[in-house]
Every structure is written in C-alpha cells, then in structure tokens.
Amino acid sequence: MTSKIALVTGAARGIGLATTKLLIEKGWKVAMVDRDGVELKSASAGINAGSAFIYDVSIPDDVDEMMTKIIEHFGRLDAVVNNAGVANFGRIEEADLSLWRAVMATNLDGVFMVSQAAVPHLKKTRGAIVNIGSISGLRASTLRVAYGTSKAAVIHLTKQQAAELGEYGIRANCVCPGPVRTKLAMAVHTQEIIDAYHDAIPLNRYGSEAEIASVIAFLCSEEASYVTGQVIASDGGFDSTGVGLPALRT
C-alpha cells in the first residue's frame, strides 16, 4: 500500500518532531520542514521515513520552492501540519511593530502561505490541514498581545479553510495546546509559574508533546474523515475552567 505523505513545519523539535515520529509509526512518510538547518538535520538523522527540507515558512519564495521540492521528492501530499511558530512575550506598550510583524509573519502568514501552496495537491488526495493554534488564541493572557492574536487568527483561518475547501474533500482543523512540558518551557518557567499552571488546569499537570501529537495524528487520519472546521483544545481542561477555579475547589 502506498504510504501517505505529510508535511510538518517546525519539525526540528517539540510538538513538530513528536508529530513526525508518531505519523511515521503509523506508516506515513514525512516532509520535515524547519528553518533551523542544524537542528533539523540532527533531528532527522536516523529517521528513514522522514526527509529534511530547510525552508522558512515566513518567506513566500521559500514556501513556493519548498512545495515544489516536496512534490518532486514524494509525488503527492496527503496532510499538512502547520506547526511552525514563534513567541515573543512582552507588554502591549512595549510591543513595537517589528515584533508584531515578526510574530505574524511566521504564525499567521506562514500558515496561510503553506496551506495555499498545498491546496492543489490536497485536492488530488482529499487530504487534511491541521493548524496548530494555542490556548492563548482562545483565552487572553498578559504579555501575549502578538502571539495570542496570531493564534486567534489561525483559529479563524482554519474555519475559513474548512468552509471553502470542504467541497474538494479537504478537511481543516485546529489543535490548541495548553501548557506543554517542552525543554524550552521547563527552562523558562519558574516553580511559581509551574505551580500556578497546575492549580489552573483541571488535570493538574502540563501536557506532553506526545499527547498533542496524538490529537494531530488523529485529525490527519481517515478516522477523522467527518471532522472539519473544529478547534480542539488539548489543554487538560484549561480553557473550560475560565478564571477563579483554584479558589473554588475548596
């Protein structure tokens, strides 16, 4: 049976790498895309069903060339996972336009451009788009004016994609991770921050990269053949509780 082909952006680390590995376990082949060439080459070493493509999804010419190379290499495309993202945190009054644009260029423009480039190929396979949003796109938080706004826009873009591409059999869904126990998060989150997140999340813990990857892989698969236009918060219940939950537990 011909292997299905997935394109995963931001595949050099974290959720993107975990998704790549899980899809390969399930029989897929994966085009691993990242602009960090050194990290991508290291991550892809030894992953026989994964092929590295060093491109920056915020650059239009990169996206066009990337898609051409991927189709030349694999011959088809069955799913796109728009995972590449950047985060610059700071107060609204300190967020200048250059910071705003840098976040939007990758988090929103990149999702739009990669998806658009993929559509002609996904029409042929009646494939899937999975965009990675964030809990920060569902509920506002301090210091995230650019990041949260970009992810909220990705959520709506997903619904637009589902509405317009459904007639071609293309499904589009969005996964919004809550706090995830990545190396980066654990390096910058103080114990006070970790405790506060645990108090606010009904499951009382961070999620894992593998747990997010399992939701993404499901949405790429035929098991989700009638699921489109959905926003799934993989967040331990964080979004459902709103504010004030810790004080109400007792």
Rank of each mutant, 00 (worst) to 15 (best):
A6I: 08
L7C: 08
G10Q: 10
A11E: 10
L17N: 08
L17M: 08
A18Q: 03
T19C: 01
T20I: 12
I24Q: 13
K26Q: 14
G27V: 01
G27I: 03
W28A: 06
K29V: 12
V33K: 00
D36I: 11
G37H: 03
S44M: 15
S44Y: 12
A45G: 10
G46M: 09
N48L: 14
A52V: 02
F53Y: 10
F53T: 06
Y55V: 09
I59M: 06
D64K: 15
T68M: 14
T68I: 14
K69G: 08
K69S: 08
I71A: 02
E72Y: 01
F74I: 02
G75C: 03
R76T: 05
R76G: 10
L77E: 09
N82E: 07
A84L: 06
V86R: 03
N88W: 12
I92L: 15
L97R: 15
S98M: 14
W100N: 04
A102Q: 13
D109C: 06
F112C: 04
P120E: 11
L122I: 06
T125S: 15
T125V: 07
N131E: 01
G133Y: 09
G133L: 03
L138A: 02
R139N: 11
L143D: 15
V145D: 03
A146T: 08
T149D: 00
S150M: 00
S150Q: 03
K151I: 09
H156N: 13
L157Y: 10
L157P: 05
Q160N: 14
Q161H: 00
Q161T: 03
A162T: 05
V175I: 08
C176I: 02
G178V: 01
V180W: 06
L184I: 07
A185S: 07
A185V: 11
A187E: 11
E192V: 02
Y197S: 01
A200R: 14
I201F: 07
P202S: 04
G207C: 05
G207M: 02
S208I: 06
A210E: 11
E211M: 06
I212F: 03
I216R: 00
L219G: 01
C220H: 06
S221K: 08
S221Q: 04
S225P: 08
G229T: 01
Q230M: 05
F238A: 03
D239H: 14
G242M: 07
G242P: 04
V243W: 12
L248A: 15
L248S: 15
T250G: 15
